[in-house]
Design a protein around this nucleic acid. Structure first.
Lengths: 233, 233
DNA sequence: TAGATTGTTAATCGATTAACAATC
DNA sequence: TAGATTGTTAATCGATTAACAATC
């Protein structure tokens, strides 16, 4: 049943496998077992085999996976076989960092333009990528058939930026603004809210015992006073 | 049983609830139901109630949650009640963006120093935050009792940067470098690999039918030729 | 053939959703 | 009291892990 929908968790692991395969191919290693992929990726060998098996039988029993072959397969599965062109909304520090990185070091995705509303930035460029005014975005998106955009504008401007690009054909957004964006349901959003990441990390920044002690204390303070879950057991 | 370990998925949602509560408190709204929290956050009301119930009974039946009270609780649960000081390794565009954002707009976490090995950057500052040379990091981490660090250096330098900060007391890392970091098991890592985010988003950047068509084609090309999962059913 | 490793099915685990009694 | 909404238990769903037959 190829028409089964593949879960997001599986899709999220594919680029990790791909990166490892890139390195293996580069080092002229041409076979790898799920066990070795496990060591490299941190996922279990069983999970890796299962993930790959959703898409076909790409390995050879007794031998493992041919790195070049598997790499090509994953590239095609994700849809990275044609060079993907994307745009960045916002030419601040974050937009600049993302543009720089993805116009040189990302082998599969290319930033082809950056848009900003600040007239002092417009006309400049980030490496060889031009910073264009916001109102040129519609035409650019259409002409280049842009499907993916990165939102790196301030929170207040994020919904407008999203609306603008979606209106002209973008259907996948990587959102760095700390807001929940509302988009039509055919549009996919990945939120990369760095503040949230950092805050949830704080939870783990004290030693285990301290954390549990803190929780125990907080639970005691429950709204309705004493409560059965405080029992020592 | 307060000593039960709380799952990562729950912890990841807490900062989202917190942000909403921040806004509600600011707007002087003092009660909110799980239903309304659901609308704001996108999670189901049941899930929100369940998440909160792990930590205690913070609501009032028939009425909902007191925003200020719940906000305080979540702050204490995450451990954001004392102002958290963090450092950024790497003063490139990404490091600069993260420093800027988290020294002004993040209400709970503060970047207090940035480290870079480039002598041309050292001595400068990002807003009011000094860029310090790498070899001052050990002393700084100890003196300020830094527990959280953000890795924003190039891939090649990331493991060294992680080793350095961990050696001197850091136990939580937010890693932006596109590499798997090896750390002792008491150290927590959140990976925020923007390249991977972008690549997995590409999977969703073509319309559903096209995606399935692509998969069907790829499966046909399985290593070992024809294979039972290609059947039309 | 013997050894290795895949692909797949079954078992387990964990997280989400549904339902509802408790209670404000 | 009646209406609303929580907190909690039970049911479902989905994802991971284990086991092993298939096969290179």
């Amino acid at each position: 049943m190829p028409e089964r929908i593949i879960s997001k968790s599986v899709i999220k692991r594919l680029p990790i496998y791909l990166r490892i395969l890139d390195q293996l191919v580069q080092r002229d290693i041409d076979m790898i077992s799920s066990k070795d992929l496990s060591t490299e990726s941190g996922f279990t060998a069983e999970q890796i085999r299962k993930d790959l098996a959703y898409f076909g039988a790409f390995g050879t029993r007794g031998a493992g996976y041919n790195t070049e072959f598997l790499r090509e397969k994953i590239i095609k599965i994700i849809g990275l076989d044609k060079r993907i062109e994307t745009i960045v909304m916002g030419a601040g520090n974050l937009g600049t960092a993302l543009t720089r990185y993805n116009s040189t070091k990302n082998p599969y995705v290319n930033v082809v333009a950056v848009f900003d509303k600040d007239p002092r930035l417009v006309g400049k460029s980030i490496d060889v990528i031009d910073i264009l005014p916001l109102d040129e975005a519609p035409r650019f998106i259409r002409e280049h058939n842009i499907k993916v955009a990165i939102i790196a504008v301030p929170a207040k401007a994020a919904q407008d930026a999203a609306d603008l690009v979606v209106k002209h054909g973008v259907i996948a957004l990587l959102n760095f603004a700390p807001v929940k964006l509302n988009v039509p349901e055919n549009v996919h959003i990945h939120n990369a809210d760095l503040t949230l990441e950092l805050q949830s990390l704080i939870y783990y920044s004290s030693p285990e015992e301290e954390r549990l002690e803190r929780l125990r204390k907080e639970m005691k303070g429950g709204k309705s006073g004493s409560h059965k879950s405080f029992s020592l057991e």
